[in-house]
């Protein structure tokens, strides 16, 4: 399935990444799963931004999902979570475009202390809806031919992004952003090695 799930913009501070704006489309998940999925997507986005060096693009595969991240030299970062079938090139062009738009609308001095409420930038949901069809991005990709696909670093799991000595399991247990229910979900999902087969 070609699908975009979430878009978010972060500011990568010295100690942690700060979420400036986010949006998601989780209609394809079952109703009671959506909360958990949303928590995990923000958790993964934040974790990955914190572990991506400046001026670098990464695409990280986790199960059937793909997390595309770009941290600019000025510490503004964009994350796009899509299905693994969504074309990688389009995903990165879209992230670049969003960050450009963001820079044009929100001045840089607001970034380090901004919150989701204080930042006025409402185009994320529009981007998310419009680019569900990657064909929409055609003129965009033509415009930005300078995007060098060979420079995107590919990783096969989130684990591969973590620093030495870090373990995803521990991070999930320690995280304050994840609810009890999400942690329970993570445990069972890991046991069955799949995210949607219960019972």
């Amino acid at each position: 399935m070609v699908k975009l799930f979430a878009l978010s913009v972060f500011y990568k501070g010295e100690s942690e990444a700060r979420l400036l704006k986010t949006t998601s489309d989780l209609q394809s998940f079952s109703f009671f799963q959506r909360g958990t999925v949303n928590e995990f997507m923000s958790f993964a986005s934040k974790t990955i931004v914190e572990r991506t060096p400046q001026a670098l693009r990464q695409s990280i595969k986790q199960d059937t999902y793909m997390c595309h991240v770009y941290v600019r030299a000025d510490n503004l970062a964009g994350v796009l979570i899509a299905d693994h079938e969504y074309p990688q090139r389009v995903a990165h062009t879209l992230v670049t475009k969003i960050l450009d738009d963001f820079t044009a609308k929100v001045s840089a001095d607001q970034w380090p202390n901004g919150t989701e409420v204080s930042i006025a930038f409402d185009s994320l949901p529009i981007f998310l809806a419009r680019y569900q069809d990657p064909k929409e991005a055609d003129p965009l990709t033509k415009m930005q031919n300078d995007l060098d696909e060979t420079k995107i670093i590919l990783k096969n799991t989130i684990e591969a992004v973590l620093e030495r000595g870090e373990k995803l399991d521990d991070m999930v247990v320690k995280s304050e952003k994840l609810s009890m229910q999400s942690k329970a979900f993570y445990k069972t999902a890991k046991k069955t090695n799949s995210c949607c087969s219960f019972t």
Binding site: S30, F31, F32, T36, Q181, A184, K187, T188, F198, T199
Partner: peptide, 23 residues
């Protein structure tokens, strides 16, 4: 409109039947 099993390993002394917006 939908039914599903919610992952929760322990009984929290609440009814395990959840009904929200036709789910």
């Amino acid at each position: 409109s939908s039914f599903e099993i919610i992952q929760k390993e322990t009984n929290c002394n609440k009814s395990p039947v959840v009904h929200v917006e036709h789910n």
